[in-house]
Design a protein around this nucleic acid. Sequence first.
DNA 1: GGTAGACCTGGACGC
DNA 2: GCGTCCAGGTCTACC
Length: 293
Amino acid sequence: MQFTLNPPSPISLYSVIHSHGWFQLVPFEILDDGQGLAYTMQLAAGRVTRFEVSAVDNLIQISTSNDLPADEEAEVRKSVRWMLSMDSNLEDFYEAAKDEPRLQKAIQKGAGRILRSPSLFEDVVKTILTTNTLWNATKSMTRKLVSAYGTAHPHDPNLHAFPKPEAVASVSEEELKETVRVGYRAPFIAELARRIADGSLDLEGLRTSQLPSKELRAEFLKIKGLGPYAAANLLMLLGRYDFLPIDSWALKMVSLEWHNGAPVKPADVEKAFSRWGNFKGLAYWLWDWTSNP
DNA sequence: GGTAGACCTGGACGC
DNA sequence: GCGTCCAGGTCTACC
């Protein structure tokens, strides 16, 4: 079945999809033309569906692999809206950035909306899987986690939804290490899943939290496996741009951009983007580093 | 508050 | 084919 979403403001689907590497992590898929996205999702009632998202005229078109009752169609609509950050308002950032040469490409592309998963659990787990490892390993661990513990699509056993916390909580740390090859991250992921499953952590509640970013960051830092980089990355996904996700790449880029390749510290990255205030994360995220190697 | 060392995996490299 | 080294954030212990 097919239906459309009407964005509240112009949206570049391509820019959202390519806002970061999430589209390379299952159950995301990139469509053959590179312009659209597919995602396999387990809906609240348990059904697994795969839907494709593409841009048609000024609308976002969604095609699902199977017919859905009205309540599940509404669930997919709501999820896609969230995944594409459709309700983010970037006008103030664009106004602030209009005279910055390093941000002109981003503005011209309509970039700034960040692709995210339907659940914060998925985004937190994936963020943990990006830490202290290389991107190929992140892709591998995610693929193994999804194929081992995610519910399969009824018509295509090769497609799996991202596992629910309950499914991960039922797995021992040893099995996670063995099956998913997550190494020392196993206890972090297992504990996170257990706390959500037993109700002691309302992670999804943080998605719409009204807490100030500093306090929301503190909530993320309480989760084992999430440090300053991961917390800032998650804040970015939630549309909070006032903390910088500083990793080794950020240090390298800032070093090349402003320090002639000399070693820099996180404080130097902070200083480089401090003038952007509450938009500094977005300015960093969208910065055009192309003159650097 | 700052720092050092350990934690794991997979890929690159040398032999 | 085997062994060694390295990259990548976070945690814990220690000062």
